[in-house]
């Protein structure tokens, strides 16, 4: 059966007049955007109580597509804008969607300090291991030896593990999902939003146009099958050796710490001390 109408989920959470989106055929970002919508839907949070903040890059186009309060900010600064929004409206669900380069290179400092402060933001990283929008330059998550337009002989850098970086910096909820593992990733985004404190979900996307083509990973289907074949649950990974885990993606909740003071609540305590009658 053919239709011109979008599904109920898409109608409710996306600005359908801007669809189809600009992402390439088979881009994992479209799947991950639906995951964000589904997570909000499952949590039954009103659209008007959500603010979605993005920076610059392919993934950051999401601020134009999703029908929440949205703001498309400058490169790497989404977390800085989100921090201001959360302080002004602590009751609001503030979500940052960012690419791997945006969050860990240009905005790397904002990431580690927001994690350290444990501010109640949910950062959903659309991690495709490359700068897609600008033409396939290698990013901080491009694996060593892989090709990019700026690494024609192979990337010589060691990649960042964004999840480990966030955990090390003090994030109190860290998980890793993929475009293929949609059901699990929706749950992780839900749990990240529900978690009081800084939450980061590192979502492995797929860029068939640049990363896939440059590195002969096949098309969108092959890249999704790679995620399917190489995703290992946290529970299974616990019983595997480092050698067995080489080249695998550990999927699931990687870290959660409860009871750590949250930034906006701590800030409010200071305000209360100086408020007459407070």
């Amino acid at each position: 059966m053919s239709t011109e109408k979008p599904s109920a989920l898409i109608s409710k959470y996306l600005r359908t007049q801007h669809l189809p989106h600009i992402w390439c055929p088979g881009c994992g970002h479209g799947i991950l955007m639906r995951d964000v919508a589904k997570a909000i839907d499952n949590l039954k949070i009103d659209n008007d109580n959500v603010c979605l903040v993005s920076g610059i890059g392919c993934s950051s186009r999401i601020a134009g597509y999703m029908d929440f309060n949205t703001i498309h900010t400058t490169h790497g600064r989404a977390i800085a804008f989100a921090t201001g929004i959360k302080l002004a409206k602590p009751e609001m669900t503030v979500i940052v969607v960012a690419g791997d380069g945006d969050i860990s290179a240009i905005g790397g400092n904002h990431l580690i300090h927001a994690a350290r402060r444990n501010i109640d933001l949910t950062v959903v990283v659309f991690n495709n291991d490359i700068y897609g929008m600008t033409g396939g330059q290698y990013s901080p998550t491009t694996p060593k030896g892989e090709l990019g337009t700026t690494a024609p002989y192979g990337n010589i850098d060691r990649p960042f593990d964004i999840s480990a970086l966030a955990k090390g910096a003090g994030a109190t909820y860290v998980a890793r999902g993929t475009a293929y593992h949609a059901v699990q990733t929706i749950k992780m985004i839900q749990d990240g939003i529900s978690h009081k404190g800084f939450a980061l979900i590192d979502c492995i996307s797929a860029c068939p146009t640049y990363y896939g083509r440059k590195n002969k990973k096949g098309g969108a289907v092959e890249m999704m099958k790679w995620q399917q074949a190489n995703g290992v649950s946290v529970e299974k990974a616990a019983g595997m050796t480092a050698e067995e885990l080489a080249g695998k993606l550990v999927i699931g909740k990687l870290h959660q710490e409860m009871g750590v003071p949250e930034f906006t609540e701590e800030y409010q305590r200071i305000i209360d001390r100086f408020t007459v009658g407070g």
Binding site: S7, P20, W23, P25, H29, G30, R34, A179, Y180
Partner: peptide
């Protein structure tokens, strides 16, 4: 529906 990046197929 779960993995269509373009929301072009779904269960209604």
């Amino acid at each position: 529906e779960l993995r269509c990046p373009d929301y072009a197929i779904f269960l209604e």
